[in-house]
Design a protein around this nucleic acid. Structure first.
Length: 419
RNA sequence: GCGCAGGUGGUAGAGCGGUCAAUUACAACAGACUGUAAAUCUGUCGCCUACGGGCUACGGAGGUUCGAAUCCUCCCCUGCGCA
């Protein structure tokens, strides 16, 4: 199955797994980058994957990176008009995506204020907020009550950000039109619709209102988008509520987007998350690429692929690397722990990543972390990024050989095995 | 030998009569991290505990006091200065 999306962009499904919805595809973009999917997108929020240089992306087999419209826009400020485009600025020929800033509507607003993530895990006894609670929340936001130092006011027509991190006391405004204009200026291959992310702390009513906004904004994004060399992905919302998710997937899935992403609250557990995928995926056209936003952990990747997801993005490989967590096919370990002080062994057995290839040992990396040497974060990032890319490669290979389910079980039992 | 300054929990270093098992930092240990506000954050960190509390602790030994890491005496040790 081959789908031309215009402007030299093409998505082709090379192989469908016979037992699951997993598939291997290729995404071709004008820059000559050909991305094999399922793929993991490394997060390079400010046009840079933290700790890595452009060459490192190639060395770690990174095929796709996602930057962030909100942070680039705020960070560039007056310098935005001179911005040369992400491929030039990053010195990277792979596929580049930009998030719309929609996530920051949540992460810098409600998420920050309530210290919650898009995935829940709050105690069962804390009930899902009811109608009145949602209504008060919405009114509070609209009136700007508790609109303190860092906050976001989501209005029907867009969002006002007050963000002292950029040394600006004034509110700045971002909406669908502006996000698309910015993303066209930034010049990524894949751009995302402007949306509002919610969390498990939002009740069904607020989630529905946010979803409706997202749908209106999605339509606006499609109407405003003009660059044929960029793919525009629509984002499904609806939280972890079955009817809302289905409604959102149906609505967004029927719009003429080039691809789709699943965003927003994924519930209160992994089971919730996988259910959300099952509710959504049937409405998202098989012939188009499908992305799962902000996920994930190793198991989530397998479960996502199994349900037909083509691309993922997550900060786990890079952030956890900087925090000392090393990923391997035998699971994760913390290299800063004392147990690694004298471990003169590679970070992972038979690893071909640039860090391991340079001969770094656990003991040496441990020491670098203890000395707060910046090289530590870089080496760990090189390793983790390579590992995640390698894992995706293994997954693709398994699908090609029609043994995805077997591979999933074998790999997960090893990776999640308690040591 | 004389003079001065000191000896506090793994380390550094607060405290200078009660609210001190002792601020804080580092180390150690455990945990978290899911469209990056994050090379970050959280917890434990004398011993025992039925988590109410109990016990032993601020160089050593005495003493003053209702009460001492905090005041006094002697001893031991360290650093600096003078011999």
């Amino acid at each position: 199955m081959r789908l031309s999306l215009g402007g030299g962009i093409m998505f082709e499904i090379v192989k469908n797994d016979t037992k699951t919805r997993a598939r291997v595809g290729t995404l071709t973009v004008p820059h000559g980058g050909k991305l094999l999917t399922p793929a993991f997108t490394m997060v390079g929020t400010r046009a840079k994957v933290i700790s890595l240089e452009p060459n490192d992306l190639v060395r770690t087999n990174t095929g796709i990176v996602i930057s962030n419209t909100y942070h680039l826009w705020r960070g560039l400020g007056e310098r935005l008009p001179e911005f040369k485009g992400l491929h030039t600025v990053m010195g990277y020929d792979g596929v580049i995506a930009t998030d719309s800033g929609g996530f920051q509507v949540f992460s810098l607003g409600f998420g920050r204020e309530h210290e919650v993530s898009k995935i829940g895990f709050f105690p069962e006894e804390e009930k899902t907020p009811g109608f009145l609670s949602d209504l008060f929340l919405q009114i509070r936001i609209w009136l700007g009550i508790k609109h303190s130092r860092n906050s976001v006011r989501v209005m029907p027509w867009g969002a006002y950000f007050k963000d002292e991190n950029y040394g600006d006391e004034r509110s700045v405004f971002l909406n669908a039109t502006k996000s698309i204009m910015l993303q066209e200026k930034l010049g990524a291959d894949i751009i995302l619709a402007f949306d509002e992310c919610t969390s498990p702390r939002h009740g069904r009513h607020y989630t529905k209102w946010a979803m409706k906004r997202t749908h209106r904004w999605a339509k606006k994004c499609l109407a405003v988008k003009s660059n044929p060399n960029q793919l525009l992905f629509g984002i499904v919302q609806g939280g972890a509520f079955e009817d809302l998710r289905k409604e959102s997937a149906r609505t967004i899935g029927s719009m003429p987007f080039d691809g789709f992403a699943i965003g927003g609250s994924l519930g209160n557990s992994k089971e919730d998350m996988y259910r959300v995928l099952e509710w959504s995926m049937p409405y998202l056209p098989d012939e188009k690429p499908r992305h799962l936003l902000g996920i994930g952990q190793i198991r989530d990747i397998f479960e996502g692929v199994e349900r037909g997801i083509d691309t993922f993005d997550c900060v786990i490989p890079t952030r956890e690397a900087r925090h000392g967590a090393i990923w391997t096919y035998d699971g994760r370990y913390d290299v800063t722990k004392g147990a690694n002080k004298n471990a003169d062994v590679p970070l992972a057995p038979d690893c071909a990543c640039p860090a391991c290839a340079s001969g770094i040992t656990r003991a040496k990396l441990h020491e670098l972390f203890k000395n707060k040497d910046r090289e530590a974060g870089k080496l760990a990032t090189l390793h983790n990024v390579y590992f995640f890319n390698d894992l995706m490669k293994s997954i693709r290979q398994a699908i090609m050989e029609d043994r995805f389910s077997e591979y999933k079980e074998a790999a997960l039992s090893r990776i999640e095995k308690k040591k």
